[in-house]
Nucleic acid binder design. Structure first.
Lengths: 247, 247
DNA sequence: TGACGAGTGTTACCGAAGTAACTGACCGCT
DNA sequence: AGCGGTCAGTTACTTCGGTAACACTCGTCA
């Protein structure tokens, strides 16, 4: 049992928790969009970044935020030995580049996963707008606070989960952040290579490949006609929680 | 060579990088202390927390920041399966509890490593003070931004380093954050069990024990009369960088 | 004083995951 | 049609690190 692709046979609280998170996050984004669009973003022109183009890179000095209008972006870094690590995936309505607030050199980089429109705003301008409209502070603090909470969740996962569970958390996170409903399933509306998924789960591509296929056999992961992933989030959450209880 | 406890035989840029970071961090803390002390903290009384007492815990609803006046605190969490993970160690002059800014339930917890004085300020009060004195925004943003940057550094380390290198990064981080100079070495002015160090490095205590002793044999780690660790930060940084270049 | 608890130090064993080295599918190009 | 590039899928080998089970050193407190 619990191997079907229906989300119906999992503890209801779990599904609730995640959907609430997703709804909150969406709510935040619209507040953000409304508020920042009206004040910071008026009269600024969006730049279009082609698929795979680097929006900003490790070591750059430009202190600018990018307000994504459309598209999907991976945020991560390249380590000293040339390996790529992905922290997060963001979409239209989110901000990227916020780490420039206290660094002179960017420690991170962002790459467009699809064609993406972004409005580029110098950090000083963001701060000035906030001084004029101080209720924007809450929004900015919230952006940082959420990112921090999620980064700590990643640390937890890396510290205690095995590859399969890390992968499942990555998939659940993708569903919550950029997924869109497609019947009873959630579709990830951009194509991610196994290599990229492996960089999010901090594992070898080969392991991710094997794990992904094992989840496919259980019906928790499928591929749409366009080659996008379709996730049974309920089943994934159930699997994730269930196996945490083994000891 | 490079096995001695002198920091003199390592590339100078490395030492510079870290010292600059540490100085910046100290500078920030004093700004922070100055500014927040004057406005947010006037007329509030510090609470004293005894060694090992829990300042706040996972799941609590109180939305309060704690401004540490004196002492040392570990910030981390307890995972679903009861294991402890430590994100950070902070000291007098730092804030803790900042994650309550966008969560109704605390995802983290803080425990005093030594007797610690902290001023407890409701999040709303913090925000109100900031509305009155908007140049405090920069300080708050900086607090979050640094925490976020460090959390991502931990993700990197977990994703690419082996146990020994993670341990070394933990030690270097401790030296920068709470260390005080003791001759050519840096002393960690509180006692940390191997178990706690293991929770910071996301490794088993046994591994940390072995690794620590191997570093001791090379003179990079010693113990003071009071049982506190003494670190040769230069040598640790050299070791860390050197072995990253192996391929 | 001796018994207990907390913490350190060490080792043999085993499993999870990284490494390397493939094959094969599916493009787009010329 | 043939070629090269990118990505998915699989497997044998090896290594790193978790597990378990110890011995040893303190300090304290009954």
């Amino acid at each position: 049992m619990a191997q079907t692709s229906q989300g119906a046979n999992m503890p209801p609280e779990l599904g609730d928790t995640l959907s609430r998170q997703a709804i909150l996050s969406t709510a935040l984004i619209s507040v953000f969009r409304g508020k920042f669009c009206d004040f910071v973003l008026v009269n600024r022109k969006a730049i279009t970044f082609g698929k795979h183009s680097v929006i900003y890179d490790v070591g750059e000095r430009s202190r600018t935020f990018f307000f994504l209008q459309r598209g999907f972006v991976k945020v991560g870094t390249i380590t000293a030995d040339g390996r790529e690590v992905i922290y997060d995936v963001r979409k239209g309505g989110d901000v990227i580049g916020e780490l420039c607030a206290s660094e002179e050199l960017r420690p991170d980089r962002a790459v467009a996963l699809e064609e993406t429109d972004a409005i580029c705003v110098p950090f000083e301008d963001v701060m000035q707008q906030i001084l004029k409209k101080p209720d924007l502070i809450a929004v900015l603090v919230d952006v940082f606070c959420r990112a921090l909470k999620e980064a700590y969740a990643q640390v937890n996962s890396l510290a205690i989960d095995d590859t399969v569970h890390r992968l499942i958390k990555v998939l659940i996170g993708l569903a919550a952040k950029i997924g869109c409903r497609s019947g009873t399933l959630v579709e990830i509306p951009t194509y991610l290579t196994q290599e990229e998924i492996a960089q999010m789960a901090a594992a070898r591509r080969e392991r991710v490949c094997t794990a992904l296929n094992s989840l496919r056999r259980r019906g928790m992961v499928q591929y749409s006609a366009r080659g996008h992933m379709l996730l049974d989030v309920g089943a994934l959450e159930f699997y994730s929680a269930e196996a945490t209880e083994r000891h």
